[in-house]
Simulated assay, not measured.
Amino acid sequence: MAVVRLDKLRKVYPNGHVAVADASFEVGDGELLVLVGPSGCGKTTLLRMIAGLEAISAGTLAIDGRVVNELAPRDRDIAMVFQNYALYPHMTVAENLGFALKLRGRPREEIAGRVREAARLLELESRLDARPAALSGGQRQRVALGRALVRDPKVFLLDEPLSNLDARLRLAMRVEIARLHRRLGATMVYVTHDQVEAMTLGQRIVVMDAGVVQQIDTPMALYRRPANLFVACFLGSPAMNLLRGTLHVGDGLRLAGAQGPVPLGLPPQAAALAPWHGRELVLGVRPEDLQPAGEGRPGRLQAQLELIEPVGNEIFLNLRYGAQTLVSRVPPRPLPAPGAPLALDFAPERLHFFDAATGVRIA
């Protein structure tokens, strides 16, 4: 396996569009790193630059200590798994798995051995003689993974490999990929627009927007300490609740918004927030941290319950707070009927604060 190092990697198209702006990070040896962001954010372009399928406009890309900016894809020792399976329909599973090795002139015995090993790892041994049309979507995706696996590359690149599968198969294949990564200890770069996929698969995540890397960290570090409003809202389902207002600092903090003052108590960031007295900021509260106040307690804000969404092990409460909506995530419990007022509370230490002008995290 190998380390992949990006130093101010940039992609600018002839029309002037900047698809990737100065991306700098390192993929560790044996790490599974996920590139995530909305459509058009540059994540697939960045992956294709690593693969050699897109020319690099500026910056340096190194794989295993060797600068590969000008190398052809076949000389970079990478294997790529695409969104569409790209299997040869007239070939059997075994022939699809071994085709790249055959093109490279590998001995027949070596090809057969590698194909058998890949089929064993991916539980395809009973399907080696079948053609793609006879396979399920999950099996086809495993063949596509196996075709990359038999090459034993330095780096695996996966471009939204599960997006064509239904929800059940996506979950099953996420487990398969995570299990495969643990077995191989392979260096993998994985692209997805699905933040749940990113959070469950990635050892680290690179969050991108408009071609710019927004934050790089472990999944839970990103969730608990988002660097800006984009990361805060992109990661998490339902998304973080946001309240905009003017901060007042006294015995405790208070946010003055369109619906009146919201007491914030004394969060750990209180000292760092003192200079923000009288200035506008954005308060963030995760749905699981916004809870109905206990019986007889006034809560920190008053909302109206609009819709209850039970999803089995938890319930989403859709609330109206003035002109905006809020969401609370609660365990199964007796609840008032839609339309009823509901007092809400939160723990000061679970709050997030952002600059209203720049979106950057405060403190």
Results as ranks from 00 to 15, higher is better:
Q304G: 10
S136A: 01
E117S: 08
V207W: 05
N69L: 08
R131K: 15
L283S: 03
T192H: 04
E309S: 13
D194Q: 14
P331V: 13
A270W: 01
I205H: 01
L243P: 07
Q304D: 13
D355S: 04
E110T: 13
L301N: 07
A178I: 10
E117I: 04
D159A: 04
R10I: 12
E95N: 00
L9E: 06
A86H: 07
L6E: 06
A198Q: 04
P153H: 05
L171E: 13
D129H: 12
A2C: 02
S24F: 08
E349W: 05
L165S: 07
N241Y: 05
M1R: 14
L283F: 00
P73K: 05
V175W: 01
R131N: 04
E123D: 13
M80V: 15
R182C: 07
V360Y: 01
I111T: 08
I315E: 14
K43T: 11
A144H: 04
S126K: 15
G257H: 01
A23S: 13
H277N: 09
A72T: 14
S126Q: 15
L342A: 06
G98L: 03
R114F: 09
P73V: 10
R170C: 07
D209K: 15
Y321M: 05
P334Y: 00
L162I: 09
V213N: 08
N318G: 09
R147I: 05
L305N: 02
G105Y: 09
I63D: 02
G65L: 11
D152G: 04
L335C: 08
